[in-house]
């Protein structure tokens, strides 16, 4: 229940606050969002499998997001930013699909 409220609050805040993203962060936010999505799907899977621990989740969430941004940042510095961000998105995408499959199996047994 609190989690759903949190989600709604986030959407409302995003709509109301209308911030201008810091230029520094702008190229990395999309990749950080994909990493965050991966972490959230992973958390849902762990919850359904009964292995969810909130501390682990927070740490893995933050580290995934930061590492994803860091990879793209370094890629930008050495001139392969576009390729590296594609790579990160592909890897995270595969993980998201795997997690989604596990969630589906746990929920629907299909």
């Amino acid at each position: 229940m609190i989690a759903i409220f949190g989600l709604l609050l986030g959407i409302v805040l995003g709509l109301v606050l209308e911030p201008t993203l810091p230029a520094m962060l702008q190229p990395y936010l999309p990749i950080m969002l994909v990493a965050a999505m991966d972490a959230i799907f992973g958390a849902a899977r762990a919850y359904l499998e009964g292995t969810f621990v909130d501390k682990v989740f927070v740490v893995s969430f933050l580290s995934n997001v930061l590492i994803a941004a860091l990879i793209v940042f370094i890629g930008d510095r050495i001139g392969v930013g576009a390729q590296l961000s594609t790579g990160v998105v592909v890897v995270l995408g595969i993980r998201i699909f795997n997690n989604a499959a596990a969630i589906r199996r746990a929920l629907l047994r299909a």
Binding site: M1, A3, L8, G10, I11, L13, P19, A36
Partner: peptide, 25 residues
């Protein structure tokens, strides 16, 4: 879902951040 817990509060915080960032983006 109906029983508040620390894990759920953590989840709420993270989801709030993610939703906000997504909307901004």
């Amino acid at each position: 879902l109906v029983r508040p817990s620390r894990a759920q509060a953590v989840m709420a915080l993270i989801l709030c951040l993610c939703a906000m960032a997504t909307v901004w983006q």
